[in-house]
Write a protein that binds this DNA or RNA. Structure first.
Lengths: 210, 210
DNA sequence: CCATTTTTCTAACAAGAATTAGATTATAGC
DNA sequence: GCTATAATCTAATTCTTGTTAGAAAAATGG
């Protein structure tokens, strides 16, 4: 039976069962596989093999292939959301609106390119996955998008953003520029930080000389 | 046998065989299916059914599922390339560099959102498709990207673009902002032209007030 | 109309991969 | 060490889907 019954009963901290650990390993492996080979292209046997297990064993931890991919996506979304909120919360209250947006851009890109396979997986898989999963995950996507909407709205209200552009188009364009990097980014080239800087400069200041 | 042997011998104009027509219909249906459901998610039976055919019949026109998807992607890429070159060629020689970029943005987006399912398919499938297909199609992608690189380089050389940003990052950010629209665009909302205008404004002029 | 060719369908086959049940091994508490 | 439970494996099963061969239908040209 489980030890540390205090933690589990209170629901705080991770259970010390080995299962909880392997569950994490499975999610990590699945995130990489699904992201790299697409939803239908990633085989359970490969995912299991990449962490020294057999395909059948995965079913001890997840009910089905679909449950696995949904868990990966939910996890990725949660991480992105948490990282962004953490970063914004760390800014001092006198941080100007444009600097907040820049921080959000850098945080998003860092998370996607560097920190979490499940974040990029949740982005790339959203249109590959069965409709019922997509619908549930999209709810989370909207919650994440709402943070960006708020950022943009506040900036505009403060007079820092031009007022003639559709805010939702703007938001999607920014996220598109960032998310697309998942596909072309190669560890050898420009660093995530540099990419984030350049995109932020383009988005906020524009490419044209003044 | 075929009539119009002159045309076919000379390789000009479409053959008048019915097969050529259905081949087009198959490509259209496949483009939609692959784009909407991903490479491995789209079934031949569905593609065939969507144009009133049976799965087996597709093999009269294409050697395999892979040959079909490659044909879709090659076609989409060719259309995007042709549309962009046509548009740029139509500009007068005194068109300023920034206006050229704006025209390219609008052309790309219009093609992706409105004119051709195969264009969006070729974009979305590139990382889902088997490696050998990807390699061949990527050559075409590079040729298309080269047009953009040229546009940006010329604009910078003319002093119209700020010189402190990585041009390849810039190019990918622009294309990312545009391509992402495939995923969120809904016919009900902002028009492709309006979206193109807003993105061009953001990319060139920036979101910040001056 | 007939003969030939083109195009599509039917029905079975084959291969791959998810899933499951039961056996087997590891782990934790006593 | 022993026992109960947790965790993993083995091997068979089922399901899905691409593929194919041959029959049927449609079109074409005379």
């Amino acid at each position: 039976m489980a030890s540390s019954s205090v933690d589990t009963v209170l629901g705080i901290g991770p259970t010390d069962r080995k299962a909880e650990l392997t569950r994490e390993r499975i999610l990590d492996a699945a995130a990489r596989a699904f992201r790299d080979r697409g939803y239908a292209g990633a085989r359970l046997a490969d995912i299991a093999a990449s962490i020294g297990m057999k395909a059948g064993s995965l079913y001890y931890h997840f009910d089905s292939r679909e449950a696995l991919v949904e868990a990966v996506m939910v996890r990725g979304l949660g991480r992105a959301h948490a990282a962004l909120e953490r970063r914004l919360a760390a800014l001092t209250s006198d941080t100007p609106p444009l600097a907040r947006i820049e921080a959000a851009i850098e945080t998003h890109l860092t998370e996607v390119l560097h920190d979490s396979d499940s974040v990029s997986a949740s982005i790339k898989l959203i249109w590959q996955v069965p409709a019922d999963i997509r619908d549930r995950v999209l709810a989370g996507h909207r919650a994440y998008g709402a943070i960006w909407t708020r950022l943009l709205r506040e900036a505009r209200a403060a007079g820092a953003l031009r007022a003639d552009l559709d805010l939702s188009v703007t938001r999607m364009a920014i996220l598109g520029a960032l998310n697309w990097a998942v596909d072309w980014y190669k560890p050898g080239g420009a660093s995530p930080r540099r990419i984030a800087r350049d995109i932020a400069q383009m988005v906020l200041g524009g490419l044209a000389t003044r």
